[in-house]
Design a protein around this nucleic acid. Structure first.
Length: 287
DNA sequence: CTGCACGCCTGCCCGC
DNA sequence: TGCGGGCAGGCGTGCA
């Protein structure tokens, strides 16, 4: 899926068109995605002012004036695209200015400004749910999430303690959303490469120094990716339909057989499979 | 409890 | 040109 930087980029695109505005209409074009949509989703959305928008891990949270929060997950291929009307639109006349829907456009939110937000998800691994705002953090998808990697509680003492006693490879540990929330396959590969840590190393074997070095490296790679508008591979798009461009900055992910870019390293990027997923790394400088 | 394979879906790319 | 296999940014379930 879009990982944390891509979700953050999508959120930042959605805020100007949704926050402080009323959802005037909702076109729910199928009964669900990975799971069925909540009961009466359309009725619970239409007419609601959006009073706040946030990101938690890879989830987008849309707080409504009703006291409910719309939880959105993009899965692997989910996109949220904004279509702005060519000219000011009178309430109730949205459809006249709307572009045609495309394949896999599953949910369309129409704001009273005339702006449309289209949720497209080819593989339908995405999800939407509605819960009371006060209990949103207890939602089954959110309750077990670990700290935000860009938050203050993700620091060296936390990571050292979290890795202690874990026999799983460090790569798998960092993909565990209970340990730290928001990393996916790409950014874990990049962070381990930057920290010169071997992805197959057992988590408990990392020295405190190594574990500590991972914290700023993870923060840096995520921050740089957000600044670049995320990474676009096959499916991900920003809300304006444009590509992110951090994929051009990958040093390891997708670079099998290419020379390692670590200064002074004469190795090349290898690819292995861990827990069914590709890992890209340098056998020479990652230890 | 931990670690891991599997399944959910569609689309794309590659080799034959 | 067509077809089958493998692959893909996630994550919950169920098993050992």
């Amino acid at each position: 899926m879009p990982e944390l930087p891509e979700v953050e980029t999508v959120l930042r695109g959605l805020v100007p068109v949704m926050q402080g505005h009323v959802i005037a209409n909702a076109d729910i074009r199928r009964s669900g995605l990975r799971w069925p949509f909540p009961e009466h989703m359309r009725e619970r959305l239409v007419g609601q002012p959006v009073v706040g928008m946030h990101r938690r891990s890879k989830y987008i949270l849309v707080d409504l004036a009703s006291g409910e929060t719309l939880i959105v997950h993009l899965g692997m291929t989910g996109r949220m695209t904004i279509h702005l009307p060519k000219q000011a639109v009178k309430p109730g006349r949205f459809h006249q200015s709307l572009p045609n829907l495309e394949k896999h456009d599953h949910v369309v939110l129409e704001m009273e400004t005339g702006a449309r937000v289209v949720f497209n998800d080819a593989r339908r691994f995405g999800a939407m749910d509605l819960v009371a705002t006060t209990t949103a953090s207890q939602h089954r998808l959110l309750a077990q999430l670990g700290p935000e990697p860009l938050g203050n509680s993700f620091d060296q003492p936390y990571l050292v303690a979290a890795l202690k006693g874990r026999n799983t490879p460090i790569k798998s540990a960092l993909l565990d959303q209970k340990l730290v929330a928001g990393l996916g396959n790409i950014y874990v590969c990049e962070a381990l490469w930057r920290a010169h840590v071997l992805p197959t190393r057992r988590a408990f074997q990392l020295s405190a120094t190594n574990a500590g070095s991972l914290v700023p490296v993870i923060r840096d790679v995520l921050t740089e990716a957000i600044a670049a508008g995320g990474s676009s591979l096959k499916d991900y798009r920003r809300t304006d339909g444009e590509l992110g461009y951090f994929q051009h900055s990958f040093a390891a992910y997708g670079r099998e057989g290419e020379p390692c870019q670590t200064p002074g390293c004469d190795g090349q990027i290898s690819r292995i499979r861990q827990s069914g997923r590709s890992t890209f790394f340098c056998r020479t400088c990652q230890r």
